[in-house]
Design a protein around this nucleic acid. Structure first.
Length: 453
RNA sequence: UCCUGAGUAGCUCAGCGGUAGAGCGGGUGGCUGUUAACCACUAGGUCGUAGGUUCGAACCCUACCUCAGGAGCCA
């Protein structure tokens, strides 16, 4: 198996007769030799290769431009010059794949906006290779967090016939020809189907069987949202726990965020160094604060009070019973608390049917975890486990019980208190990398009018 | 979807009514154990698209397209 640069650069001693492969970042020629820097994606750092001009293969140099792929045999030796610990003294250089002058990535900074237009090449850049290495490690850390707690991973369906009410517009899945008069009964599944907006309802069925479960998969929203925080296809982590109340739900969510902040610091040191240097100077202190400080909790009612008493002129009025606007959430997270904060017990009128009604008759056991800079990163609730209250709520929301018969059955047979939440994976990545646009933390972003790959 | 701003060389941008510019990248030559090297020369553009105003438009006006920032919706 070919060795990676990550492994080679970590070597404790010089190595003779090794072979390296990678993509050329830059080449500099001098009279006696050429310097080539290659990366192979295994780590942020590259390897400097020195090719003496007397070697026959030095005739290849003019075709070794930025972006080309090469394979080099040589010896790993301590570098006599400053800038790197090791370098490879080449014996033989082979050009694997040429890259001519049209290669779009140059030896200079590019804007993320330009790099989005070449999403197939951007993982080769410093920024995006770091982002996607971090994404992979964070993904693994999420599984580890839940697996260590004994949670089971459940693969909920991508194609569903149920709308997780309130979660937004759906993408229709159909094999019917456009414009045909065929009825839904004639469609592939014999009924209208959609790409899932959430695995929650199916997740609840498994929580009411296996106890503690989580899902981690893609979800889809056909909303015409054009912001740096929304994508039409995004990944969501949705734990669902039997016998949890809202308080336990919030505690798990806080622990979850704290664990991932710590994982970023411990498992992505090179990436973190890059992000805090070039993307977000406050990143390390923000992560450290997330780990060290207890998260605050504020009830929705108290949040409305503190907004009203803040003396702030908000563009949108603060009114009990209406949703908190972005500016309100930002004020609470960034100026009042100055850190992550959970807001709980929202008015029932602005929340979906499945959230558990509180005894006050006005609020439901819902919570949103807000972080500075991004806003809502987690939304969750204790679920309504009482059959009569749930069916009344469904009726109130204009939902037919027949469509949700299986969901209602969970309350009919051995119903238990349970709770869960959804965490947007990309929003989490924005939080732990400092990258400010969701399109830049997902490999191929899907946004309105944009799915070119 | 709404509000604001921007589209000029492969990339980053300057030019804002009178012959289309720079840096980087490419080519050629020079220099150098170089570090997104350096020096000189050189190639490269229907100024987002379509109309309009004007003797003359990259520049002013209109529409459209695209992108960005903010808002709504949410994760």
């Amino acid at each position: 198996m070919p060795d990676t640069l990550r492994h080679i650069l970590a070597s404790e001693s010089a190595l003779t007769s090794i072979t390296v492969r990678g993509w050329v970042r830059t080449r500099r020629d001098s009279k006696a030799c050429s310097f080539i820097e290659i990366t192979d994606g295994s780590c942020f750092k590259g390897l400097q290769i020195v090719v003496d001009a007397i070697l026959p293969c030095s005739s290849l140099m003019p075709s070794i431009l930025t972006g080309a792929s090469i394979e080099v045999d040589g010896d790993l030796i301590p570098s006599p010059a400053a800038g790197q610990k090791w370098e490879l003294q080449a014996k033989e250089v082979r050009l694997l794949g040429e890259a001519d002058a049209t290669y779009p990535l140059q030896k200079k900074g590019h804007t993320p906006e330009f790099l989005r237009t070449i999403a197939h090449l951007r993982p080769r850049t410093n920024l995006f290779s770091n982002v996607f290495r971090a994404r992979s490690r964070m993904s693994f850390a999420i599984h580890r967090f839940f697996q260590e707690k004994g949670f089971f991973n459940v693969h909920t369906p991508v194609i569903t016939s149920s709308d997780c009410e309130g979660a937004g517009e759906l993408f229709r899945v159909t094999t019917l020809k456009q414009g045909s008069n065929a009825k839904p009964e004639d469609d592939f599944f014999g009924r209208p189907t959609y790409l899932t907006v959430s695995g929650q309802l199916q997740g609840e069925t498994f929580a009411c069987a296996l106890g503690n479960i989580y899902t981690f998969g893609p979800t889809f929203r056909a909303e015409n949202s054009n912001t740096a925080r929304h994508a039409a296809e995004f990944w969501m982590i949705e734990p669902e726990m039997a016998f949890y109340d809202l308080d336990a739900d919030m505690t798990l969510a806080e622990e979850n965020v704290r664990y991932l902040a710590a994982a970023m610091i411990q498992e992505c040191p090179e990436e973190l160094e890059f992000f805090s240097k070039f993307v977000d100077k406050n990143l390390v202190s923000r992560l450290q604060q997330t780990i060290d400080q207890p998260f605050q909790r504020i009830s929705y009612t108290d949040a409305v009070d503190l907004l009203l008493k803040s003396g702030r002129q908000f563009e949108h009025a603060v009114v009990w019973g209406e949703g908190l606007q972005t500016e309100h959430e930002r004020y609470i997270a960034e100026e009042h608390v100055k850190g992550p904060v959970t807001i709980f017990n929202y008015p029932k009128g602005i929340k979906p049917f499945y959230m558990r009604q509180n005894d006050d008759g006005k609020t439901v056991a819902a919570m949103d975890l807000l972080v500075p800079g991004i806003g809502e990163i987690i939304g969750g609730s204790q679920r309504e486990e009482r059959l009569d209250v749930l069916t009344a709520a469904m009726q109130h929301h204009g939902l037919s019980e027949a469509d949700y018969q299986w969901y209602v059955d969970l309350r009919r047979y051995g119903s238990v208190p349970h709770a869960g939440y959804g965490m947007g994976f990309e929003r989490l990545l924005m939080f732990v990398t400092g990258v400010s646009n969701i399109r830049d933390v997902i490999p191929f972003a899907r946004t309105p009018g944009h799915a070119p790959y």
